[in-house]
Design a protein around this nucleic acid. Structure first.
Length: 517
DNA sequence: TTGTGTTTTATTGCCTCC
DNA sequence: GGAGGCAATAAAACACAA
C-alpha cells in the first residue's frame, strides 16, 4: 500500500519533472498562436482544443500561452502608457473614463462596448460592422498605447516621438521590406544592423509583432495608399470636428489634419494632395513586397468573412456560433499563409515564393508534430505531413538545429532562400529566431539537440481529434481557402499596394463614402 | 567562454463569474 | 463549487557583451 503510494509519488515526481521541463514552442506553433491570438484573445475551449490539436500542443499549454500572451500585452500596454503618456491623451483618459478594461488589457465580457481595440481594429479592417457606439469607442481605444506601440514598429513615422531617422528613411520595416526586395520577387535578408544603426531594434515580442503585424499594417497602408493618416483616427472613421482653436497652431501641416480615407472623391482633391505628397510612404509602398502578399491575403481573407461575431459578447452562450462563424468560416489562423505555410512550402522547392519566410528561422521543429501522429490530410495550417517531400522538414534531422556562422553574409538571396526552404531554427521564439536568422544568414549548422517533448496527453489528443473530427469537418479549410482564394502577386516588381484584392478597397471605399455622405 | 539580462514557458494561488 | 482568467514566481532558453 505504502509502496504503491510511494511508487506513484515517485512516478508523479518524475512526471512532474518531465512536465516541468520548460519547452520551447516551435516557430510554427508560435506563429499559429500569435495569429490566432490576433483574432481571438479569448479562445473558447473548442478553439483551444482545435488549436492544440493542430499545433500539437495541449490545451493546457494553449490556455497558458494565451494567458501569458494577454499578460504580455497588458504589461506592454502599461509600460507603454507609463513611458509615453505624452503621446496622446487618449489612452490615459480612456482608462479612467469608465471603459472597463481588465488587467490584461483585454475586455471583460458582458460589456459589448469594451471590445478589445485590437479586435475591433481587426474586425473593422475585415469589414465587420460596428455600431456607431462601437466605432466611437474604437476610435478612442485606438489610441491605446499598445496599438500605438505596435504601430511604432511599422507606421509611426508621424508620431510625435517619431524619430527623424525614420521619417527620413521611412519605416524601418518598410525599409526592410523594400530593401529586401529583389527583381525576381525574392527577398534578400536585410542585415539587422541596418535597422540597428537606425536606432531601431525591436526585441522579443516586437520582433515577432514586427514580423506579424507590420506587414499587415503596411498592407493596409498600401491599400489605402495616400489616404492614410498614420497617427489619426482609424481608417475610414470620422472624428467629430474639433472645436475652434483646439490646437494652438494653425495646421499648416496637412499631415495632421484628419483625412477621410478611402473616399475616391478626395483622391483627387487638391487639398489632400498636399498630404499625398507626404514622403516615403508611397515610395515605400511602390516597391512591391511579396512578403505582403500573405498579409494582403490575410486581409482579404478576413474581409471575405463578414460574419464574425463579437467574440466577447456572451462568450459562452455564443460559443458554438462564434466558433463556427469565426473559426470555420474564416481563417482562424490568418497568418497561416505566412507561418505554417512556411513549413509546408519550404519543404518543397518553391520556398522563394513565400518571402515571409525570409526572416523566419526554423527548426526541424515540427518534430513534435511527428508525422506518425499527424493527419495525412493537410491540416488547417496547410502542412501535409504525409508528403514525402516534406518529411525532411518535419523530422528533426538528428535533433540538430542549424546555425549559420555569425558573420555570414546575409545579403545573399540564395542563402536566404536556402534558409527559408530548409531553415531549421532554434526552438526559441520567432522573434529570436528571426533575429538569429538575420544574423546567421542562410547557412545552418548543428547547434544542439532539440528537446523533444511529447507531453501531449494521448487521451487529450484522442479527445481533441475526435472532437475535431466531429465538429470541424472542414479542417482543411485553411489550406484550401487561403491558397486557392488568395491571389498571389505574381509580379512583384509591378505588384503594388493597389493590386490588393479589389474587395478590400471597394468595400473600404464604399464604407467611407457612405460615411461621408 | 562566461556572466548578465531578457524572453518564454510552466506552475500555483487567488479572484470573479456563472 | 467549478471554470476561466490574472498575477506572481521560478526556471529554462536565449541573446549579447566583455
Amino acid at each position: 500500500m505504502e509502496d504503491s503510494a510511494e511508487v506513484q509519488t515517485e512516478e508523479n515526481k518524475v512526471f512532474l519533472d518531465v512536465n516541468k521541463k520548460r519547452t520551447v514552442k516551435t516557430p510554427a506553433q508560435v506563429m499559429a498562436l500569435e495569429n490566432f491570438y490576433k483574432e481571438h484573445r479569448f479562445p473558447s475551449d473548442e478553439m483551444k482544443a482545435q488549436l492544440a490539436a493542430q499545433i500539437r500542443l495541449t490545451e493546457k499549454q494553449i490556455s497558458s500561452w494565451f494567458c501569458h500572451r494577454r499578460l504580455k500585452d497588458k504589461r506592454r500596454d502599461e509600460s507603454y502608457a507609463n513611458g509615453r503618456q505624452d503621446h496622446s491623451s487618449g489612452v490615459i483618459q480612456d482608462r479612467g473614463s469608465g471603459l472597463r478594461q481588465d488587467s490584461c488589457g483585454s475586455i471583460k465580457q458582458g460589456d459589448y462596448r469594451n471590445v478589445d481595440p485590437r479586435e475591433v481594429e481587426s474586425r473593422r479592417i475585415y469589414g465587420h460592422d460596428f455600431p456607431a457606439a462601437d466605432l466611437t469607442y474604437e476610435r478612442r481605444s485606438h489610441q491605446n498605447p499598445y496599438n500605438a506601440h505596435m504601430e511604432d514598429t511599422s507606421s509611426e513615422n508621424s508620431s510625435s516621438l517619431h524619430d527623424q531617422r525614420f521619417s527620413e528613411s521611412g519605416d524601418p520595416y518598410d525599409m526592410q521590406i523594400s530593401a529586401n526586395l529583389t527583381q525576381n520577387g525574392a527577398i534578400t535578408q536585410i542585415k539587422p544592423r541596418i535597422a540597428k544603426s537606425m536606432g531601431y531594434k525591436p526585441s522579443g515580442y516586437l520582433k515577432v509583432k514586427g514580423e506579424l503585424e507590420n506587414p499587415a499594417i503596411t498592407a493596409v497602408k498600401r491599400q489605402l495608399g495616400r489616404h492614410y493618416q498614420e497617427d489619426g483616427p482609424l481608417l475610414g472613421i470620422e472624428f467629430d470636428p474639433l472645436p475652434p482653436g483646439a490646437f494652438e497652431f494653425h495646421s499648416s501641416n496637412p499631415v495632421n489634419e484628419p483625412i477621410y480615407v478611402g473616399d475616391p472623391r478626395q483622391d483627387h482633391s487638391p487639398d489632400i494632395s498636399g498630404v499625398l505628397k507626404q514622403p516615403n510612404l508611397n515610395i515605400i509602398n511602390e516597391v512591391h513586397n511579396p512578403k505582403l502578399s500573405s498579409q494582403d491575403s490575410y486581409v482579404e481573407d478576413a474581409k471575405l468573412n463578414t460574419e464574425h461575431g463579437s467574440e466577447r459578447q456572451d462568450r459562452k452562450s455564443h460559443h458554438q456560433l462564434k466558433y463556427k462563424s469565426s473559426f470555420l468560416c474564416s481563417n482562424p489562423f490568418p497568418g497561416q499563409n505566412s507561418s505554417i505555410n512556411i513549413y509546408e512550402s519550404s519543404a518543397g522547392k518553391t520556398a522563394v515564393s513565400d518571402c515571409k519566410r525570409s526572416r523566419m528561422s526554423y527548426k526541424p521543429a515540427v518534430e513534435r508534430m511527428g508525422s506518425d501522429s499527424f493527419s495525412n490530410q493537410p491540416g488547417p495550417y496547410g502542412w501535409k505531413i504525409a508528403n514525402e517531400q516534406e518529411k525532411p522538414w518535419l523530422h528533426d534531422d538528428d535533433n540538430h538545429t542549424y546555425k549559420a556562422p555569425k558573420n555570414e553574409n546575409l545579403s545573399k538571396t540564395s542563402n536566404l532562400i536556402h534558409g527559408c526552404s530548409e531553415s531549421q531554427g532554434t526552438e526559441r521564439g520567432p522573434s529570436a529566431r528571426m533575429a538569429k536568422l538575420e544574423k546567421l544568414g542562410g547557412e545552418w549548422k548543428p547547434k544542439r539537440g532539440y528537446p523533444v517533448r511529447e507531453n501531449i496527453d494521448p487521451t487529450n489528443e484522442l479527445k481533441v481529434a475526435k472532437r475535431v473530427k466531429v465538429e470541424f469537418p472542414q479542417q482543411n479549410f485553411v489550406a484550401n481557402a487561403s491558397h486557392s482564394r488568395l491571389p498571389l502577386l505574381t509580379n512583384p516588381t509591378k505588384g503594388s499596394s493597389m493590386d490588393v484584392p479589389s474587395s478590400f478597397s471597394e468595400d473600404e471605399t464604399a464604407e467611407t463614402s457612405s460615411s461621408l455622405d
